[in-house]
Amino acid sequence: MALNTPQITPTKKITVRAIGEELPRGDYQRCPQCDMLFSLPEINSHQSAYCPRCQAKIRDGRDWSLTRLAAMAFTMLLLMPFAWGEPLLHIWLLGIRIDANVMQGIWQMTKQGDAITGSMVFFCVIGAPLILVTSIAYLWFGNRLGMNLRPVLLMLERLKEWVMLDIYLVGIGVASIKVQDYAHIQAGVGLFSFVALVILTTVTLSHLNVEELWERFYPQRPATRRDEKLRVCLGCHFTGYPDQRGRCPRCHIPLRLRRRHSLQKCWAALLASIVLLLPANLLPISIIYLNGGRQEDTILSGIMSLASSNIAVAGIVFIASILVPFTKVIVMFTLLLSIHFKCQQGLRTRILLLRMVTWIGRWSMLDLFVISLTMSLINRDQILAFTMGPAAFYFGAAVILTILAVEWLDSRLLWDAHESGNARFDD
């Protein structure tokens, strides 16, 4: 018995066209964080690309023209004298008006014999932002004059995390709450300039795509075929072959399989920071003279006294001054041990922890910024005066060393310790 099946006739004509040209192939790229070699397709503007294995951002879609970056830099340069030299806060102490600005706080630190601690604050609040705007201006002028731009481009990517104007702005709020127990506070004209400078700096850093600047100024022929001998440069993120001198053909720094002496430098910085954190938390970090009496505060006791007036601000200072430094030390110690013992479990967790400490590390400088600003506000000789204690130097040095330890660690070593050939990683 035959089955009668109805015929289905399409209502619209289906047209099949042959592909007349070869589909576009992607360029081969190595991930600078996990060293995976993959094919990167062509990316349009405002599109980002991520590593298929570790999800690290390979290409950032946010990109401004150099002219727009230069305009932002010149605007920031105009704001800087007002943000640093004009009063941020006014207080009335014992019937006398006192003005506080950024430069005055750094000068008070240096004047009291601790120039190293003052230079830490100076670099993060004044030096690094000033280098940022002058570097962008150098790129703008240098591109037109045919100057060598490689050193500036190499420095810009590392400079971003040292620009800490946003953290200093939080420190202004913390210092205001600490001082309000002794005097009446009012915002100064410099505060508005400083807030504007923070906003412009944040926007500029978020749109400063150094890798795209490398592509514009020093374009290189990408690798179009897969080759395990391809290496990625950690300076400019170019994937290719080393030249005859073993250097990256684009930025001219040595092109090595792994960062040289990464573990040794990381261990040295980490152990030194552990040693410095002990006096930083045991010795007094601030000293207040009130009517001839002397009151010393460690980091913890200062947080407890701050909690009596504002528990939320005390929580912020606790996280930045105690929780973050010790968390960074514990995480980095764990990561280094996992590399030495070739741990194969929990790779995803370790990668996330490394990215976390990379982002939060700079916030530990908050305590030094609060001390710097408070020193310029309260300084009335023996009637009422505020000065920093010996722990300030140890704390600042420990924070900087932990930042350097994270920067010096080559994250690809975590993958080397893991089993080879993993296309995915999980716990």
Rank of each mutant, 00 (worst) to 15 (best):
I136P: 01
D181T: 02
S45Q: 07
T202L: 15
T110W: 01
P242D: 10
L352E: 09
M332P: 06
W408T: 10
Q55R: 07
I14N: 11
I253M: 04
G190Y: 01
I299K: 00
I322M: 11
M120E: 03
A128I: 01
E157D: 12
A307R: 14
L139V: 08
G293Q: 13
G235F: 06
K178P: 00
V179D: 05
D416I: 11
I91N: 11
I360M: 07
P24A: 08
L354R: 09
A272M: 03
P219F: 13
L336F: 08
I185K: 01
D427Q: 12
R225W: 13
L130T: 12
K111F: 02
R231P: 07
L159I: 06
W107M: 13
I285W: 00
L323M: 13
P325S: 08
R260V: 08
V317E: 01
A196D: 09
I378Q: 00
K229D: 12
M147W: 12
T117A: 11
P254N: 03
T327E: 03
D381T: 01
I167L: 03
L153S: 09
L156V: 11
P32E: 05
T402A: 01
T202K: 15
F369Y: 09
A272D: 01
H46S: 08
P254V: 10
A128K: 00
A175M: 00
N4I: 03
V232T: 13
L159W: 01
Q295C: 10
T349W: 12
L336T: 11
W84P: 04
Q382V: 10
T204N: 11
A398I: 05
Y138W: 07
A272H: 02
P24W: 09
V179W: 00
G61E: 07
R250D: 01
K111Q: 10
H207C: 15
T334M: 15
Q186R: 13
L213A: 13
I400Q: 08
V406L: 10
A223V: 12
M109I: 10
R97T: 15
D416N: 13
L149Q: 12
A2T: 08
I136W: 09
V189K: 15
P279H: 05
S48L: 12
I360E: 01
G389P: 01
I400V: 10
A385N: 07
R150I: 07
Q33R: 11
R25F: 08
Q7V: 03
P52G: 06
I299S: 09
L384C: 04
E42Q: 06
N148V: 03
T11K: 06
A115E: 15
R226G: 15
K12D: 06
N422H: 12
C233P: 00
F217E: 05
G85R: 10
E161K: 02
F369G: 04
I371N: 00
F74P: 06
I131W: 01
Q344C: 10
I96M: 08
L153P: 02
C233M: 00
P52F: 06
I360S: 05
L271Q: 13
A100M: 01
L271K: 10
T387Q: 06
L145P: 02
P242G: 10
D63A: 14
S411V: 08
A73N: 08
L255I: 08
L306D: 00
L89D: 05
D99A: 08
M103E: 09
M109H: 02
L156C: 10
I106Q: 04
Q264D: 05
L66F: 05
E86T: 03
L89Q: 04
M388P: 06
G315E: 04
Q112H: 08
I299P: 05
R245E: 12
H340L: 10
T387Y: 06
H340I: 09
F386I: 00
W64H: 08
I316C: 15
M155V: 04
S65V: 06
I371G: 01
F217Y: 13
W140H: 06
L347C: 14
